[in-house]
């Protein structure tokens, strides 16, 4: 079975994100970028499925600027077999990403697409769901456990109030939650071997997709600074304040 793993290049999780002075987005110039951590979990899961002999080939896909090749290279170093880069300078919103991935899925015919439940930059949590809808495939989102048997994938989902287990017919789309696994460090020999693995570059036009944004960003602003709290002397005062000032009880 072939597995397709979309990987997104995002601002590194250690970086303190800053809003651009003109309010059009967040600053990415000169900022350290790396693979979306949820996508790392997706790559790890795919590699584990390959190590178990369930998957035969892992294809890592990234969409965006030329530097996304680095993100693909990281996936190759972790154990993916080859990469596809859809190169564009256009701003990519979830629907465009889902359409591009659907187009790739139609030619690649993977048995499973596994990707992060969301990216840590815009936290949209939409691509996986839209992709499943466009392909007409079942989806198991927020996976904390997956098991494949025959033509069925069983996905344990982290939902409000507990865990839900669903069985999906393959091919399917799975999005990963934090507890699915702990991604490995790519070993140096594998990093060096990744250099020889192929990455194919294509454009949105070649895939027949117009990636133009459908949503307009009105403004991007820092969250308001947290104000200092107030100290109360007694429980009675706290209750009084909650009732009279905050009006929550």
């Amino acid at each position: 079975m072939k597995i397709l793993v979309p990987v997104k290049r995002v601002v590194d999780y250690n970086v303190k994100v800053r809003v651009k002075t003109d309010g059009t987005g967040v600053e990415t110039a000169g900022v350290k970028m790396s693979m979306n951590p949820f996508d790392e979990i997706a790559v790890e899961e795919a590699v584990r499925l390959k190590e178990k002999g369930i998957a035969t080939e892992i294809v890592a896909v990234s969409l965006g600027v030329a530097q996304c090749a680095e993100t693909i290279r990281t996936a190759l170093a972790m154990g993916a077999d080859r990469g596809i880069l859809v190169e564009t300078d256009a701003e990519l919103q979830p629907l465009a990403v889902a359409k591009l991935l659907a187009a790739i899925a139609k030619t690649e015919q993977p048995g499973l697409i596994i990707l992060g439940k969301q990216a840590i930059d815009d936290d949209m949590s939409a691509t996986g769901q839209m992709l499943a809808a466009l392909l007409g495939w079942p989806q198991g989102t927020f996976a904390s456990k997956v098991a494949i048997e025959g033509e069925t994938i069983t996905v344990t989902r982290e939902v409000d109030g507990g865990l839900e287990t669903v069985a999906l017919a393959l091919p399917a789309v799975v999005t990963t939650d934090l507890r699915l696994n702990e991604p490995r460090y790519a070993s140096l020999p594998n990093i060096m071997k990744a250099r020889k693995k192929p990455i194919v570059t294509m454009s949105p036009a070649e895939l027949g997709v117009d990636p133009a944004p459908r949503l307009t960003v009105v403004s991007v602003a820092e969250p308001p600074k947290r104000k200092a709290g107030a100290k109360v002397a007694s429980v009675a005062e706290l209750v009084a304040k909650l009732r009279n000032e905050a009006k929550v009880i």
């Binding site: 790396s34 290279r73 990281t74 250099r195």
Partner: peptide, 9 residues
């Protein structure tokens, strides 16, 4: 690219 990936790892 390899040098950067190695450093990051």
């Amino acid at each position: 690219q390899e040098q950067a990936i190695i450093r990051d790892m």
